[in-house]
C-alpha cells in the first residue's frame, strides 16, 4: 500500500492567521482517516452540526473543516456539566496527490464523511508482466 497521500495534523491555532470573530470555545473533532487504493476517507464526529452548517475548504493543500453548532440556551440550571458545546474546527495538510475537484462530503447523524479521491498519478497501477 502506497503511503503517498500522507496527512499530518496542524494545530488549528498556528495554521490559521485569521482569528474567529465569534467568541466561545472551539473544539477539535475526533477523526478517522482511512486510506484506500483510490481515495482518502476522512470521517469526523461533529455532533450537533448539520450539513448546511459545515464548511469544508481545500486550498493550497490544506483541508479545513469548520462546523457551526447552534449554541444551547445559556440560562440553564446545570446540575452536571461534563462537556462543553461549541463549534468544531480542524485543519489538515494533505499531499498534492488529491484530485481537489472531486472532493465530496456527506453529513449524517452528526458524522461528517469526506471523500478525497486520489489524483490519477497517485493511484496504484498494476503492470502486467508478460512472459517472453
Amino acid at each position: 500500500m502506497s503511503n503517498d497521500a500522507r496527512i499530518t495534523k496542524n494545530e488549528a491555532e498556528n495554521s490559521s492567521s485569521a482569528e474567529q470573530t465569534r467568541c466561545g470555545q472551539c473544539y477539535r473533532p475526533n477523526v478517522d482517516i482511512i486510506e484506500k487504493s483510490d481515495e482518502l476517507l476522512v470521517v469526523a464526529d461533529v455532533p450537533g452540526a448539520t450539513g448546511d452548517s459545515i464548511d469544508v475548504d481545500f486550498e493550497d493543500g490544506a483541508l479545513t473543516i469548520r462546523a457551526a453548532v447552534a449554541p444551547r440556551e445559556d440560562n440553564r440550571n446545570y446540575l452536571l456539566r461534563e462537556y462543553g458545546v461549541g463549534d468544531f474546527f480542524r485543519t489538515f495538510r494533505v499531499s498534492e496527490a488529491i484530485d481537489a475537484g472531486k472532493i465530496s462530503a456527506q453529513c449524517a447523524d452528526g458524522v461528517l464523511t469526506l471523500h478525497l479521491p486520489k489524483a490519477e498519478a497517485a493511484k496504484p497501477r498494476k503492470i502486467a508482466v508478460q512472459s517472453a
Binding site: 477523526v31 478517522d32 482517516i33 486510506e35 484506500k36
Partner: peptide, 13 residues
C-alpha cells in the same frame, strides 16, 4: 473496520 485499507488516524471511539 475494513480490511485492506490503511488507518492513518483512529480517534473515534
Amino acid at each position: 473496520h475494513e480490511d485492506g485499507v490503511t488507518y492513518h488516524r483512529r480517534e473515534r471511539a
